[in-house]
Computed example of a mutant assay.
Amino acid sequence: MSASRAGWATDGLASAKKQPLLIGWREWVELPDLTAIPIKAKIDTGARTSAIHAWKIQRFSDAGMPWVRFELHPVQKDNRTRIACTMPVHDEREIRSSNGEVTVRLVVKTRLRMDGRIWPIELTLARRDQMGFRMLIGRTALKRRVLIDPSDSYLTGREPGPV
């Protein structure tokens, strides 16, 4: 789908970087600060904050500042692939899940790469064992950067090879 189909001007005057990225309701993304393994993510405008499936979440202090250790399990239906991560804690927030339950989650700042574009996002750490996707990308991470076609998937690229 072209930018013009989405209703955005393509008159040559607008820079390609200023054009919103057209994405589907699910996309392959990367978190270059955490892992080189692509992650299948659900695009969820109903969620304010993005979330990643994390295990063994441990808070600790380094030079008086809050940090967190955790494991990413980036491959869907595969708990053997584990990525050990250590990051500063950016925030701590109450998050209301889709079933209405409120939990306190740690928030880290990292970079998201989608279709060659990279931008900073806030990411909550949560166990997503029962969810269909290891990562959920919320509206704050998408704001002013993307247009979503909810009827399509993987508009930025198909599933990568074996991971």
Results as ranks from 00 to 15, higher is better:
Pro74Cys: 15
Gly46Arg: 06
Ser97Met: 11
Asn79Ile: 09
Arg80Asp: 13
Arg82Leu: 15
Lys109Arg: 15
Leu125Met: 07
Val108Asp: 06
Asp152Thr: 08
Asp78Ala: 10
Leu155Lys: 10
Gly116Ser: 13
Arg113His: 10
Trp55Ala: 12
Leu72Arg: 00
Arg69Ser: 10
Phe133Pro: 01
Lys42Met: 05
Ser97Arg: 02
Ala63Asp: 11
Leu112Gly: 05
Glu30Ala: 07
Leu34Met: 10
Glu159Met: 08
Arg127Cys: 06
Trp55Asp: 15
Arg158Gly: 08
Thr103Glu: 06
Val89Gln: 15
Arg82Glu: 15
Gly24Asp: 07
Ser98Phe: 08
His73Val: 12
Thr124Arg: 01
Arg69Cys: 04
Val146Ile: 15
Thr10His: 08
Arg145Tyr: 05
Asp11Asn: 09
Arg69Ile: 02
His53Gly: 08
Leu34Ser: 00
Gly138Thr: 11
Ser97Gly: 12
Ser50Arg: 03
Met1Cys: 11
Val89Ile: 15
Leu136Gln: 02
Gly138Asn: 06
Gly100Asn: 05
Val108Ser: 15
Asp33Ser: 06
Arg128Cys: 06
Lys56Leu: 09
Asp78Leu: 07
Val104Thr: 15
Ile118Met: 08
Arg96Asn: 12
Asn79Asp: 14
Lys143Glu: 11
Asp78Trp: 05
Val75Cys: 05
Arg145Ser: 04
Gly24His: 09
Leu21Glu: 02
Thr81Trp: 14
Ala16Pro: 04
Ser15Trp: 06
Arg26Pro: 00
Gly64Lys: 12
Val75Met: 07
Ala84Val: 03
Ala51Thr: 07
His53Gln: 13
Asp44Arg: 04
Val163Ile: 13
Val104Asp: 09
Arg80Val: 10
His53Ser: 14
Ala63Ile: 06
Met131Arg: 02
Ile95Phe: 11
Ile57Glu: 00
Val104Ala: 13
Leu34His: 01
Ile52Lys: 00
Lys42Pro: 01
Gly138Val: 03
Ser151Pro: 00
Arg96Cys: 10
Phe133Thr: 01
Trp119Gly: 03
Thr35Glu: 12
Leu34Lys: 00
